[in-house]
Simulated scan of single mutants.
Amino acid sequence: MLVCDGLSALPDAVANVWPQTVVQRCVVHLIRQSLRYASRRDWPEVAADLKPVYTAVNEVQARERLDEFDAKWGHKYGSIATVWQRAWSEFVPFLAFPDSIREVVYTTNSIESPQRSIPPGRHRLRTLPQRTGSAQEDLPGHPRSRPLRMRTQALEQQVEGSAERVRPALRRPPYRRTGIDQSDQPKTTRPKGLKTPKS
């Protein structure tokens, strides 16, 4: 089961690899997308009227609740019902599960919240992974992964070794004194058959 936030290419990409994957649209993202079409002062009432749609017992009841919502708000915010109708095939799969499972699969916030709690820069990969072992061992959370300091030192040694190899090619040209050096001037050749006039 794939719970996504509405990226158009993601379900197709996953279906190419795992054809039996059930795609579930994040309900929280659907609500946020719906509120974009509503005035801020109407957000509490609109959100409360959308709740019977995603808390319905089955798909039939959810469709009835959406029609009731459209009958109430369609004249003012007709685009909200359209948002749910376009995502309907990806919205209804979680309605077949009990409430204990719905709480897990109806949103992606359980993944987004820990990522937001990490201070900026802490989760970034600071060095290139060492390819001495498998790809899983290079990940920071793997039990056999080497400490970040050891990887940093190894990378610095590689950079220093590369600098020593290219240092001769990066040397500056020798310093030239001011003035014209006759040895550096291009030599002019006189065409054949041309005689120098006598003074």
Rank of each mutant, 00 (worst) to 15 (best):
Q115C: 13
Q130N: 12
W84R: 11
T152I: 15
M150C: 03
R149L: 06
G161A: 09
R116L: 10
L170I: 02
R65P: 01
M150H: 01
R190F: 08
I31N: 07
R149T: 04
Q153T: 01
S89C: 12
T55H: 01
P44K: 00
S39K: 02
G121S: 12
V53N: 03
C4Y: 14
S117C: 14
D184T: 06
F97S: 07
Q20T: 13
A47D: 00
T196H: 15
H142W: 04
S117R: 15
E156S: 13
R63N: 10
S39R: 05
S39Q: 08
Y77N: 07
A135C: 11
P186I: 03
N16F: 05
V46Q: 02
W88H: 10
G133L: 01
A13I: 05
G74Q: 08
R177N: 04
Q157F: 04
H123I: 05
V159C: 11
L128Y: 04
G141N: 10
F97H: 13
V60N: 00
P173G: 02
T21L: 14
V28D: 13
Y54I: 00
A87L: 09
P114T: 11
S183P: 10
R171D: 11
A62Y: 00
A87T: 13
R146G: 01
I31R: 08
V14H: 09
N109Q: 13
P44D: 13
S89R: 14
Q33I: 00
A62F: 00
V3E: 00
Q158F: 06
I31Y: 08
F94M: 13
P114Q: 03
P129H: 06
E164Y: 02
S39T: 14
N16A: 15
R124N: 11
A62T: 02
S117T: 12
C26W: 09
E156H: 12
D5C: 05
V92M: 11
Q24P: 00
P93G: 09
A56C: 07
R63Q: 10
L95D: 00
E160A: 12
R32K: 14
